[in-house]
């Protein structure tokens, strides 16, 4: 499924957050969106998922969802957004309970994704008993259980430590290679963007505009730090002034 953004602008009252964003997320690609804080990347992701109504412009989808998809556009959240009173399996079940799905089919799906993510042994654990990495795995399992056509990832790894992040990047890549689900990956971490994305969209801040669109023309198996260094350098030059400005601002 493709996602087409046509001249989207958004503001809260007098504050302009996004200005005239147009882009297309192609079928089966990972588009990373980076930018300093305050560039409106989370707002854009909200608009893409239908959780926010843009002040201007529109978002279109094109193409068909995979078979058995219950929720074509599905989020993975920065803070995991798990129901703390539900077990791992219960959290995955939450995404399925209101769908027309037999109990057996639901159990089968839950079991399938938990096995895929390596959570089977933790099915009855509560979120508070899990590490941050395991919690985000539950978030991923919940998203996969509805068989999404488009995944929207809102800084999914930024609440995790560096090592866990590294492990999860690899796991996510392996999963993505198996499904090739269209994905929009919002992050402020250049390395994450370069490791995962086909293209990187750089937003400027106040209001958010597309500064540039950079294709990551290195095969995914070849993305070593050395090979990515020139691209990283280019992206950093593109955003560093604004990142510094954002850093020195009152929050």
């Amino acid at each position: 499924m493709r996602l087409i953004v046509e001249r989207v602008s958004h503001g809260y009252g007098a504050l302009e957050v996004l200005d005239d964003i147009s882009l297309t997320v192609e079928e089966g690609e990972i588009l990373a969106i980076i930018g300093p804080s305050g560039c409106g990347k989370s707002t854009l992701l909200g608009i893409l998922g239908g959780l926010l109504k843009p002040s201007k412009g529109r978002v279109l989808t094109d193409g068909s969802a995979p078979e058995g998809s219950l929720n074509p556009i599905t989020y993975i959240f920065q803070d995991f957004a798990l129901l703390p009173w539900r077990s791992v399996a219960g959290n995955v079940a939450f995404a399925l309970e209101h769908r027309r799905l037999g109990a057996r089919e639901r159990e089968a799906r839950i079991d399938e994704v938990l096995a895929k993510i390596g959570l089977r042994d933790f099915a009855s654990a509560l979120p508070r008993q899990l590490s941050g990495g395991m919690r985000q795995r539950v978030g991923i399992a919940r998203a996969l259980a509805v068989r999404p056509a488009i995944l929207l990832l809102d800084e999914p790894l930024s609440a995790l430590d560096a090592q866990t992040r590294e492990i999860l990047i690899e796991e996510f890549l392996a999963l993505w290679l198996a499904h090739r689900t269209t994905a929009v990956y919002v992050t402020h971490n250049l390395d994450e963007a370069l490791r995962l994305a086909d293209r990187v969209c750089v937003l400027s801040r106040r209001p958010g505009r597309i500064r540039e669109m950079v294709a990551v023309d290195v095969g995914r198996q070849d993305r070593t730090p050395a090979r990515l260094a020139p691209l990283r350098e280019r992206l950093w030059r593109s955003i560093q002034d604004e990142a510094r400005a954002a850093d020195r601002e009152y929050v």
Partner: peptide, 12 residues
């Protein structure tokens, strides 16, 4: 964010 999550899964 929990409410947003539920909405993102089309929970009534």
């Amino acid at each position: 964010t929990l409410i947003r999550m539920a909405q993102s899964f089309d929970v009534p």
